[in-house]
Simulated scan of single mutants.
Amino acid sequence: MNDLAERVEEWMVGQMPIIRMHGGTSVVREADPEEGLVVVELGGTCSGCGISDVTAQNIKRDLIMDVEEVEDVQVKVPDTGDMGASTVEGGRGGELQFSTESSDHF
């Protein structure tokens, strides 16, 4: 893993503990320091969650502000129909957990 990817992973752990607290997972799929592009994928209970779009926007905004060479952030969140996918296997958050609750469960 490159240095930027490691720093983004550390940032995610420190800045976004709410993801894990709610049973979600995240993984850095790409971190290109030359392009300034970071791709983060959310999974677990983030899939189909009614506030995952807010979480994604917060990650985009804050990551660009906090990590100097990051200029563009893409956050991928599988929709409810993809909840069985293992796209975020190995991401932080421990075992993948999938919500069967509606998006208004908060």
Rank of each mutant, 00 (worst) to 15 (best):
M1T: 14
N2S: 14
E6I: 11
E6L: 09
R7V: 15
R7E: 04
R7W: 02
V8R: 04
E9Y: 06
E9I: 04
E9P: 05
W11E: 04
G14M: 07
Q15D: 08
M16H: 14
P17M: 00
P17D: 00
I18P: 11
I19Y: 01
I19D: 00
R20H: 02
H22V: 03
G23K: 06
T25L: 09
R29C: 15
R29W: 09
E30V: 15
E30D: 15
A31I: 05
P33Y: 04
E34L: 03
L37G: 00
E41T: 06
E41C: 13
L42Y: 04
L42V: 06
G43R: 07
G44N: 07
G44C: 09
C46E: 09
S47Y: 01
G48S: 09
C49T: 00
S52P: 13
S52V: 05
A56I: 13
A56N: 11
I59M: 08
K60G: 00
K60I: 12
D62Q: 14
D62C: 14
L63K: 08
M65F: 02
V67S: 06
E68W: 06
E68D: 14
E69T: 08
E69A: 14
D72S: 10
V75M: 02
D79F: 08
T80C: 10
G81K: 12
A85H: 06
V88L: 02
E89S: 12
G94F: 02
E95M: 01
F98H: 00
S99I: 12
S102E: 12
S102H: 06
S103V: 13
H105M: 12
